[in-house]
Lab assay of single mutants.
Amino acid sequence: MQIFVKTLTGKTITLEVEPSDTIENVKAKIQDKEGIPPDQQRLIFAGKQLEDGRTLSDYNIQKESTSHLVLR
């Protein structure tokens, strides 16, 4: 499924993911596309910070959901 990640600069990154993917996996995909190390990434969805060990389905992130990327 596709999800979108919006950066603070207003850029939207499109990612191909599975509901069973962990947040860690998603951060690795963002690193592949954008070159941002996962330890600098914070992903926010529905006002919550997403934890590495959880999956997209844990957070009820469905296709075409948009989460926000904040850099630390």
Rank of each mutant, 00 (worst) to 15 (best):
E34R: 05
F4A: 06
S57A: 14
I13N: 00
V17R: 00
N25L: 13
R54F: 12
D32P: 02
Y59S: 02
A46C: 12
L69V: 07
I30E: 01
S67T: 15
R72L: 15
K27A: 01
D39F: 11
I61L: 06
G10I: 02
E24S: 13
Q49P: 11
I13V: 05
L43D: 00
N60M: 07
E18L: 15
Q40W: 09
I13D: 00
G47Y: 04
L71P: 07
D21C: 07
T9H: 13
L43T: 00
K27V: 02
F45S: 04
T14L: 10
L8E: 14
K48G: 05
M1T: 04
I23W: 02
T7F: 15
L69A: 02
I13P: 00
K6S: 08
Q41V: 09
H68D: 07
K63V: 09
L56M: 04
R42Q: 13
G53K: 11
Q62R: 11
E64Y: 14
K63D: 12
I23K: 00
T9E: 10
I23T: 04
R42F: 13
I44L: 12
I23Q: 01
L69Q: 02
G35N: 07
K6R: 12
P38C: 09
V70H: 15
E51A: 08
D32E: 14
G47L: 03
F4S: 06
V17I: 04
K48L: 11
I3S: 00
T14E: 08
I30G: 00
K27S: 01
I61D: 01
F4H: 10
D39P: 07
I23M: 03
D58K: 02
I23P: 01
R54H: 11
L69E: 01
Q41C: 07
K27D: 00
Q49Y: 13
H68G: 06
N25A: 14
I36S: 03
G10W: 05
K63A: 15
E24L: 14
N25P: 00
R72F: 15
T7H: 05
R42V: 15
L8S: 14
F4I: 10
P37G: 04
L15S: 00
L43P: 00
T66R: 09
P19S: 08
I61G: 01
I61E: 01
V5Q: 00
L50E: 01
T22C: 04
E18P: 03
E24F: 14
G10C: 09
I3Y: 02
F4Q: 08
L56A: 01
R54T: 06
K29G: 03
T12I: 15
Q31V: 04
V17P: 01
L56Y: 01
S65R: 07
L50Y: 01
R42T: 15
K11S: 07
L69Y: 02
E18K: 14
Q31L: 09
T55E: 03
V70P: 01
E51F: 07
E18G: 07
T66C: 11
V26H: 00
V26E: 00
S67Q: 11
E24V: 07
T22E: 02
Q62A: 10
E64D: 14
S65M: 11
P19F: 06
K29R: 07
L15A: 01
V26A: 02
L8R: 11
K63E: 12
K6M: 12
G10F: 04
K33H: 09
D39K: 11
D52A: 07
A46H: 14
Q2Y: 13
T22P: 05
T22I: 04
L43G: 00
L50I: 04
K27Q: 02
L69M: 07
K6F: 08
N25G: 08
K11Y: 12
K33Q: 12
D52S: 07
V70I: 14
E24I: 11
D21V: 04
T55N: 05
G53A: 10
S67D: 10
R54I: 04
I3C: 02
R54L: 10
A28D: 06
T22N: 04
V5L: 05
T14C: 12
L15I: 10
T55H: 05
D21E: 09
Q2A: 08
Q62M: 12
Q40R: 11
I61P: 02
Q40D: 08
E24A: 15
K6T: 12
T22M: 06
E51N: 07
L71D: 05
R72M: 15
H68I: 15
I13R: 01
E34D: 05
L56V: 07
Q62L: 12
I30V: 05
I3R: 01
K29Q: 09
I13F: 10
G47H: 05
I3H: 03
K29V: 04
S57W: 09
K6Y: 10
K48W: 07
Q41F: 14
Q40M: 11
A28T: 10
P37W: 05
R42C: 15
F45Q: 03
K48M: 13
L69N: 02
T9C: 15
S20E: 10
R42N: 11
D52T: 06
E64H: 13
I36V: 07
D39L: 09
L43S: 00
V26D: 00
R72E: 14
K63G: 14
G53N: 12
Q62H: 14
V17G: 02
I36G: 02
R54Y: 13
T22G: 03
